[in-house]
């Protein structure tokens, strides 16, 4: 017995785009957190009892703090409650959870770091830690509210796509790659399933090593309840069927390991 749910202190809370909030918390999780891992965040409202899995956007190991950037998904939601919390409040969290991106594999390579929608935030810590030959950050947004863009520009070459064409390439991240004639030897991606499906296909057609971070509705967040499974290509050793647990075996998978 080595882990516990802890009450993390909220250090700051800021709205950085429509429905998008940035929160820094002081937590033990900051010490070991890897890009691509997540934390489970709990409300103090007993009517909303399941943890919300939120990806880690940035860590400051020396300060023992960690940043999450999350979307408020609607009225009376857990994420809305999070967004109303203030510096000095405490929030119950467990983390870090899951497996992060193997960023050390990027060394000496041309890389795509791809994020779409609320899959954009984890790309930041990944970009900060990664040492590679060419760091091409390709991020997709709905509109001109290109949150985290300044931070990305300090950490690599940035290519943006927007659904409405207001910034960068009109379309999605794959359109941005084509329009800019970009190439990579390794890909790291986080975003909605249709985006990941397109990236997986592109990577496999071109023989590119590719890591994708998947999302599914979770209950326990620690690998016990088997709610958040995805289909695996081979029979999974733990489940003994073709299912992998996103929270425990993922959320980052080698694209060829999973069927999405």
């Amino acid at each position: 017995m080595t882990r516990k749910r802890e009450d993390a202190e909220i250090l700051s809370q800021e709205r950085i785009a429509k429905d998008i909030y940035s929160m820094w918390i002081r937590t033990e999780a900051a010490e070991t957190a890897q890009p691509g891992q997540f934390i489970s965040m709990y409300t103090n409202d007993g009517s909303k009892l399941l943890p919300r899995p939120i990806s880690i956007c940035e860590t400051d190991r020396e300060a023992g703090s960690l940043r999450v950037v999350y979307r408020v998904t609607g009225k009376n939601t857990g994420t809305e409650i999070f967004s109303q919390m203030k510096a000095g409040d405490t929030i119950p969290v467990i983390g870090p959870l899951g497996n992060g991106f193997p960023y050390e594999r990027a060394e000496g390579k041309r890389v795509f770091l791809m994020g779409g929608g609320i899959g954009v935030p984890p790309v930041l810590e990944l970009a900060k830690r990664m040492k590679c030959d060419r760091k091409q950050i390709v991020v997709g947004y709905r509109d001109e509210e290109t949150f985290l863009r300044d931070e990305f520009e300090q950490n690599g070459e940035v290519y943006i796509s927007t659904e409405d064409g207001s910034v960068g390439t009109k379309g999605n991240v794959m359109d941005a790659i084509r329009e800019n004639a970009l190439e990579a030897d390794i890909i790291y991606a986080c975003g909605p399933t249709p985006m990941l499906r397109a990236i997986k296909k592109y990577a496999e057609e071109n023989g590119i090593e590719c890591y994708i971070s998947l999302e599914e509705r979770m209950a326990c967040g620690i690998g016990a309840c088997l709610a958040c499974v995805c289909q695996s290509k081979e029979k999974d050793e733990h489940s003994n069927v073709h299912n992998k647990r996103i929270c425990k075996d993922g959320p980052v998978f080698l694209s060829t390991e999973v069927e999405i």
Binding site: L49, L226, V229, C230, V241, H242, N243
Partner: peptide, 12 residues
């Protein structure tokens, strides 16, 4: 072994 149901499998 049983594979279980398709996802989503849980909701709050």
């Amino acid at each position: 072994p049983w594979s279980g149901n398709p996802t989503p499998r849980v909701a709050e």
